[in-house]
Each structure stands twice: as structure tokens, then as C-alpha cells.
Design a protein around this nucleic acid. Structure first.
Length: 220
DNA sequence: AAAACGGGGGC
DNA sequence: GCCCCAGTTTT
């Protein structure tokens, strides 16, 4: 179709090799033992519109006190709000956590469902959160598109989309499935450390040789 | 399509 | 002081 297709596979493999040099996303910061579906679900709720370095400090405080839906309900909305206060949106998030845990206990036997459509029924869970639980929590195929994945894929010209949901669908159609799970982790890492919305640090970018927008500082 | 939720950190 | 942050829901 196009004369020069963006070399997405080469780029993602390069990023995979360079990953160790960068600050990693929230789920990786929380450590291997924290990668249970329930912790990923709750931590992702806490992380909405919040820096993940802050969430990575606050979330473990909550998990130390309550690590299951039943324990969360026992803790109660007020106490949850106090514990998560620094992440912001604490009232909304505490209310959503309680509502989610109630549903998990009443309808899912206290377990987090692995099905995307079931996850999307939970209050406060949109496509980004649901797909992160599917991929990072269960290791199942899915594409988690946050603002970094959306921005960078469009910056590269790999997709031309207006919303993260459109980007997710475009990637499902054209990105080889072996990259579905790692693309989020790779592009969030790149987006946080180098490929910023404004003033990206192209001079130290590991894929500068093949990026079509090298030196272009405006967001898209 | 736009507002609203919100404290913490960077500049 | 001003702006942004691994979004989602409501108007």
C-alpha cells in the first residue's frame, strides 16, 4: 500500500533491548510478586491521571492492609480514601474500588474475570484498564492503548487515528500478535522517558535512526 | 464534544 | 504560579 511502511517490528525489538536503561511503567515498578490480576486492577484504578511513580508508592500501602475484595470491603470506603489520598481523585477511586470489590464477590466468586467484556462492565474500568488486566494480569492476547501508545503510534505514522480506542482497533488489525502484549510496556517506557508530548529527547532516542519525525517537537 | 474529578511534582 | 499525569464517566 505505502511505499515505505514503518518498521514497527524492528523498532519494538530495539526498544526491548534498550528497556533496562529507562524508568519502567507502574506494573513493573511494583515488582514481580505484585502482578496478580487483582493488584493490577486496583493499582490501575489508582493510577488514572496520576504519575505512576507516585502510584507505585501509594498502592503498596493499600495492599499491605487489604489484598482481596473481601478485605477491601472490610476496610471500607472512608479508610481506603484516606490511604490513597495522595494519588488524587481519591473519593471517586475509593468509591469505584468498593463497588468493584462488591461485584467481584457477588458475581465472580471473589475472582477477577479474565474476559475483556466482563472487565468492561466494572465501574471505572475502561478499555485501557481492562486490556491491561487481560495482558499484564493474565498474559492473554490484548492491546492496551494508553495516551503514550496512542501518541507515539500516530507520531510514527504507523496508524492515523483520533482516539485511543481507534488506535487499539487499528493495532489489532495490523500489528503482529506477538507484539500485542509488550507494545504497551515498551511505548509507555519510551513515552515517559524520551518521546514526550512536547520536546521529545530525540538526541538520545534508541530508534532515532528510523523515526520519521526525528526532531519534530510538536505533539500530535 | 467538553467538563469534571484532585493532589503531587516539574519547571 | 501554571501545567501535566499508564482515563473514565457524566453532561
Amino acid at each position: 500500500m505505502t511505499a515505505t511502511q514503518f518498521p514497527i517490528e524492528q523498532v519494538l525489538e530495539t526498544l526491548e533491548r534498550e528497556l533496562a536503561k529507562f524508568t519502567l511503567p507502574l506494573i513493573d515498578q511494583m515488582g514481580e510478586v505484585s502482578k496478580t490480576p487483582f493488584r493490577i486492577l486496583i493499582a490501575t484504578i489508582l493510577s488514572l491521571r496520576t504519575k505512576d511513580t507516585l502510584t507505585a508508592v501509594v498502592a503498596p500501602r493499600l495492599f499491605a492492609v487489604a489484598d482481596t475484595p473481601a478485605a477491601m470491603l472490610e476496610l471500607g470506603e472512608e479508610r481506603i480514601a484516606e490511604l490513597i489520598y495522595p494519588v488524587g481523585f481519591y473519593r471517586v477511586k475509593a468509591r469505584q474500588i468498593v463497588a468493584i470489590c462488591r461485584i467481584l464477590l457477588e458475581q465472580y466468586n471473589g475472582e477477577v474475570p479474565s474476559d475483556l467484556d466482563e472487565l468492561l462492565k466494572l465501574p471505572g474500568v475502561g478499555r485501557k484498564t481492562a486490556n491491561l488486566v487481560v495482558t499484564a494480569g493474565f498474559g492473554l492476547p490484548g492491546i492496551c492503548v494508553d495516551i503514550h501508545v496512542h501518541r507515539i503510534c500516530n507520531r510514527w505514522g504507523y496508524v492515523q487515528t483520533r482516539t485511543p480506542e481507534e488506535t487499539e482497533m487499528a493495532l489489532r488489525a495490523k500489528l503482529p500478535q506477538q507484539y500485542w502484549i509488550p507494545i504497551n510496556r515498551l511505548l509507555v517506557t519510551l513515552g515517559q522517558n524520551i518521546c514526550h508530548p512536547t520536546s521529545p529527547k530525540c538526541s538520545i532516542c534508541p530508534i532515532r535512526d528510523v523515526c520519521p519525525r526525528i526532531g519534530v517537537t510538536r505533539s500530535r
